[in-house]
Design a protein around this nucleic acid. Structure first.
Lengths: 106, 106
DNA sequence: CCCTCAATTGGCAATATGGCCAAATCGCCA
DNA sequence: TGGCGATTTGGCCATATTGCCAATTGAGGG
């Protein structure tokens, strides 16, 4: 695998890794409905504020979200047009997996 | 976040995590061209056979690939129709990120 | 049967990730 | 300016991931 390919794949992997966590997927789905402040996300997720903040920082560093400070609150929004395609595909695969596991058990 | 949502998101996260590694992305791209035996993948990747094998096992457990033993070789193929959509989206985001980083540097 | 090649598995060490607490920042308002 | 609420950051520990080596399994060919 040459260096250029590796670079490209590493960049892609970083983006996928950023999405590859239940809490961060939840955040992305939530933001798909519109911008949210950290405190609103924290409330829905039910984890420590610092934990949520770190997940958001990770999403931001992967370029998936933008933040904007307004007053004492910080609002996050999706930077991504095609995320829903991602998630639909994951949903499809997940469904197939369930079906397959049922077949296995038979 | 209720238990049902968490289950769904965990399943999705597992799929994304399986894709979130340069070597595994490489494998997926390679398999998008057709089935390959482990030794062919190993050669192109340039890592230890056992390493490649473990990546393949992970992809399989996530339901992204199927394997079939023929003689002494094992052939893997993609189980996924929509993977190319995934990768195109990642590509788009990656490109945007590069653009943005250039702007930042300005 | 024995040897070899293909692949998987187990084990281990290095590194990365996730989540909580505590401390530091930042805006705002009295 | 002092204090408060919102958020981020640093530190720490538990756990997960990665990649190599060594050992094991499996199929075929002398």
């Amino acid at each position: 695998m040459d260096a250029k390919t590796l670079n490209r794949l590493q960049a892609h992997a970083q983006i996928l890794k950023a999405l590859a966590h239940p809490t961060r997927l939840f955040i992305v789905e939530e933001l798909a409905h519109g911008e949210r402040c950290v405190c609103a996300l924290r409330e829905r997720i039910g984890a420590d504020m610092s934990t949520v903040s770190k997940h958001l920082a990770l999403l931001k560093s992967a370029g998936l979200v933008d933040d904007e400070k307004r007053g004492s609150q910080v609002f996050y929004r999706l930077r991504l047009c095609c995320v829903s395609g991602f998630l639909d595909c994951a949903e499809t695969v997940a469904r197939e997996n369930v079906t397959r596991q049922l077949e296995m058990a038979r």
